[in-house]
C-alpha cells in the first residue's frame, strides 16, 4: 500500500489496555487555564517512567464548560484502576488546586468512579463544604484566594494506550514536518491524546536492553546512526525517524487517530510509515495499518 508515494508497511501497532479518565479544568482566562493544563499534564508521557500518561484532549468554548468559563478537557491514562485515584488526586491537588482561579470537574460519565474531590476536601481542614447539584456532588475547598471547586468523584473507563506509528524519511527536517502535520491533524479529534512532548517521540524504545538492569532501551532497529552495527529496519536513503504515540478512550478513537495522522504524514520526503510492536504477544489491542487505512476512502491511495 502506498499513500502519496509513501510506502505503508504491512504491519501493526501493538497497544495495551489502560484505564482512562477525562476531566475538565476551567479558569478565569487563558493564561491560568494554560498554566493549569500544562502543569497537570506535565511529566506524564509514559506509564513506565511517569506512572500515567496524560494530555490535553481539546480546548473548550465557554458554552461547553460547567461554569461558563474557558476550559480544557484533559485525558489521563493509567495501567490500573488503583493507580488512577492516586494520579488524579496527586495531579489535581498539586497542579490545579494550587493554580489561581481554577476549578476542576469530572467529564466522563461512567459507573466506575474514583474519589478525587472526596480526598482533596480534607485540605479544607473541616471547613470544606459539599454541594449536590443535579445528582453530582462538588466540594468547595477554602483556599487563600477564595475557594477551589472540584467534583467529588471522577468517571473512568477502559481505554487503550500505546497506539502508534513511525514516520521514516530522507532527512530530519522532512520527518519533523510530517510529524507536525500528523499531530495537527490528530488534534482535531476527540477521545484521544498524544502524551509525548508536542505529540511526538524521538526516542522510541525496544523491550529489554544489553544492560541487565534496564527493562527498555533505545529502539536500535530504527536508529539511523546504528545502521550497519545492528540489524536495521530502516529502508535505504532514510536518515530520520519519529514516532507518534496515541492513547484513547476506545479502539475506534485510536484507529481513527492513526488513520488521520498517517494520511497527514505522507508528504514529500517521507519514505515509509510503519508501526511499533512486540510480535503481537504482549498487547491486547492490535491496529493493522492496512486495515485501518483501507477503511478511509481517501484520495491519494495507490
Amino acid at each position: 500500500m502506498r499513500i502519496n508515494g509513501v510506502e505503508i508497511v504491512d504491519t501493526f501497532a501493538e497497544a495495551f489496555g489502560m484505564w482512562g479518565a477525562r476531566f475538565c479544568v476551567t479558569a478565569e482566562n487563558s493564561r491560568w487555564l494554560d498554566a493549569a493544563a500544562r502543569s497537570v499534564t506535565g511529566f506524564a508521557t509514559s506509564v513506565i517512567g511517569c506512572g500515567c500518561e496524560a494530555g490535553i484532549e481539546r480546548y473548550l468554548d465557554t458554552s461547553e464548560t460547567p461554569d461558563g468559563r474557558p476550559g480544557v478537557h484533559v485525558l489521563l491514562f493509567t495501567p490500573s484502576k488503583k493507580n488512577m485515584g492516586k494520579q488524579l488526586v496527586g495531579r489535581i491537588g498539586q497542579a490545579v488546586m494550587t493554580c489561581p482561579t481554577t476549578a476542576c470537574f469530572d467529564a466522563l460519565e461512567g459507573s466506575e468512579r474514583v474519589p478525587v474531590g472526596a480526598g482533596l476536601r480534607y485540605f479544607g481542614d473541616t471547613f470544606q463544604v459539599s454541594k449536590m447539584l443535579d445528582g453530582k456532588r462538588y466540594w468547595r475547598v477554602p483556599v487563600m484566594e477564595g475557594e477551589f471547586l472540584v467534583s467529588d468523584s471522577f468517571g473512568m473507563q477502559k481505554g487503550v494506550g500505546g497506539g502508534n506509528f513511525l514516520i521514516i524519511g530522507r532527512d530530519a527536517a522532512s520527518v519533523l514536518r510530517a510529524a507536525e502535520a500528523a499531530v495537527d491533524a490528530i488534534g482535531s479529534l476527540q477521545g484521544v491524546i498524544l502524551p509525548f512532548p508536542g505529540g511526538v517521540v524521538r526516542s522510541g524504545s525496544q523491550v529489554g536492553s544489553r544492560y541487565s538492569f534496564l527493562p527498555a532501551s533505545t529502539n536500535v532497529a530504527f536508529c539511523p546512526t546504528l545502521r550497519g552495527l545492528v540489524e536495521s529496519a530502516l529502508p535505504d536513503d532514510s536518515n530520520s525517524v519519529l514516532e507518534i504515540v496515541i492513547d484513547g478512550l476506545d479502539d475506534e478513537g485510536v484507529a481513527e487517530a492513526m488513520r488521520t495522522g498517517i494520511r497527514a504524514a505522507c508528504i514529500e520526503g517521507i519514505l515509509q510509515i510503519t508501526a511499533g510492536n512486540y510480535g503481537g504477544s504482549l498487547g491486547d489491542h492490535l491496529f493493522r495499518l492496512h486495515e485501518i487505512l483501507e477503511k478511509s476512502a481517501g484520495d491519494g491511495n495507490e
Partner: peptide, 26 residues
C-alpha cells in the same frame, strides 16, 4: 467579598428551570 466558583453551576441550572438569571450574577 469574593466570587464563589460554584455559583455559575447553580445559575446555569436555574436558567434551565426557567428562573430569571442574568450574566451579572455569574
Amino acid at each position: 467579598r469574593y466570587r464563589p466558583s460554584f455559583i455559575p453551576l447553580y445559575m446555569k441550572y436555574l436558567a434551565e428551570q426557567g428562573l430569571p438569571v442574568d450574566d451579572s450574577i455569574t
